[in-house]
Nucleic acid binder design. Structure first.
Lengths: 131, 131
DNA sequence: ATATTTGCAAAGCCTTTGCAGGGGA
DNA sequence: TCCCCTGCAAAGGCTTTGCAAATAT
């Protein structure tokens, strides 16, 4: 992965220490973490950090387009995704975790009256993957 | 619409007065109401009713299969739907309201590894309909 | 008599906000 | 200096829960 600090700057985000670490975590090892998981991780691996800062940072990074925010029908929490491409998700009910489905693997054809203008399509496939 | 009381009984729900009224409202005039809308409606049209009873009733009716519960990525509240068939939703961002898309108007083809078992697919199409 | 339903208030979960203090440009 | 960032605690939106009182079987 390229230099995180530089990425932040390129996206117009001031690279504070917290932002760098959180960005590195989400863009790297984390897999669809929630705000709470980010907080826990930060508290274990960095100095103590406040909940508000985590939420602020996640909002910053999302607005900057570095990560994406997803909320799902089945699950109350918001998750953050390093994948900013157009894609969908598979929710594994057994492990309570999410996987990306890239846009190519999902074909959707929606018939709508011509007056309907579509801005986005959210798809969540739920089930089990016995990997 | 057929007799509501009878429908409740057939679905194993004791037909209390609140349940009958709420079921009639959701199965009839209401359009994807939230718990709060049901509460407001009940307080205007019935005797006062508590929030807990509304939530309890909505849970009962949902579990009985008389209505369905939907939660969407874009919107925090849960909505209740008289349509219990397999279907998807269109979210009109301008009016902040939902419309049903019947399953026929949405074709989805999802390529998954064979070990994946799909239980359900949630789709929300967001945009504007200038009707 | 017994089980169910209801109302109320409190708590819970997740997220946002207000404000004061601290640190970097 | 000045502005932005951070932390803390409080509040906010929505939903659930605990418990006692009312109601139905």
């Amino acid at each position: 992965m390229q230099n995180i600090e530089q990425m932040l700057v390129e996206h117009g985000v001031r690279p504070t220490i917290h932002r760098i670490h959180i960005a590195r975590y989400i863009l790297g090892e984390a897999d669809h973490p929630t705000a709470d998981e980010v907080l826990d991780w930060a508290n274990q691996n960095l100095s103590k950090i406040s909940r508000a800062t985590v939420y602020n940072t996640l909002r910053e990074l999302t607005q900057a387009g570095l990560i994406r925010e997803f909320r799902f029908p089945q699950v109350s929490r918001t998750v953050y995704d390093k994948n900013t491409e157009n894609h969908f998700h598979f929710y594994d009910q057994a492990s309570d975790s999410f996987m990306d489905l890239n846009a190519d693997s999902v074909k959707v054809d929606i018939q709508l009256p011509p007056s309907f203008k579509v801005n986005c399509v959210d798809i969540l496939v739920s089930g089990n993957c016995s990997q």
